[in-house]
């Protein structure tokens, strides 16, 4: 994969196509995992993430795999899109229906799969209250099952920093889950 990066950087169109073919499914999955499968913004966000991947390719230093590099960009983009949607929800349409902004319905779950999506959506909602680095680290860790070393490589930070972000993020998350009645299903999961 590294040789593809070098070739793509030098303007090789075939290499760029091969590189995009390798990372695009990862980007698509990341956007859908964070935003929700039915979110109408998924394609736009994924497109922007892939464009950002191409844009930032010259800065890729090999601290992570190329797929992880692309995935981190997609996760960051998707988290930012969620925050933006929530900001609009609060300021533009206070009291308006959440699903107008593409956030999946969080009505009571009727089956296991729906319950899983419901809890995941609540967790993502809780992440929005955290700082960006903490939310990103938690998302990569819990939503994408990345180890601390992998996250450190993806974020370009020391492992100890990632560990600290996870620890502080979990503390904040726990406090939020305990005080927010909308997050009751998560509280039950934690108890």
């Amino acid at each position: 994969m590294r040789h593809l990066v070098a070739s793509a950087r030098s303007g090789d169109r075939a290499a760029m196509r091969a590189l995009l073919t390798a990372v695009a499914p990862v980007v698509a999955r990341a956007a859908r995992r964070v935003l929700g499968r039915a979110n109408p913004d998924v394609e736009d966000v994924a497109q922007q993430a892939l464009a950002a991947f191409v844009d930032r390719l010259p800065t890729f230093r090999g601290e992570s795999t190329v797929k992880h590099f692309a995935e981190r960009i997609a996760v960051y983009r998707a988290l930012t899109a969620r925050r933006d949607a929530q900001v609009r929800q609060r300021h533009v349409m206070p009291g308006g229906p959440v699903d107008e902004l593409g956030v999946p319905d969080i009505a009571p779950a009727h089956d296991v799969a729906l319950a899983g999506r419901h809890r995941r959506e609540l967790l993502l909602e809780a992440l929005e209250a955290l700082s960006s680095p903490q939310a990103e680290a938690l998302a990569l860790h819990f939503l994408f099952d990345h180890t601390i070393a992998e996250i450190a490589g993806m974020m370009g930070t020391p492992e100890e920093t990632v560990r600290s972000r996870l620890r502080l993020g979990k503390q904040s998350l726990r406090a939020r889950i305990l005080r927010d009645p909308r997050l009751t299903p998560l509280r039950e999961e934690l108890s």
């Binding site: 196509r17 499914p25 698509a28 994924a46 191409v54």
Partner: peptide, 26 residues
């Protein structure tokens, strides 16, 4: 939290279809 969010699924057909559109657009 790991239980709450569930396992990370491998890319599925919808991911692949979206990926193809992304590549062509890019």
């Amino acid at each position: 939290l790991g239980r709450a969010v569930g396992p990370l699924p491998p890319p599925d057909d919808e991911d692949e279809a979206l990926a193809r559109r992304l590549i062509e657009h890019q």
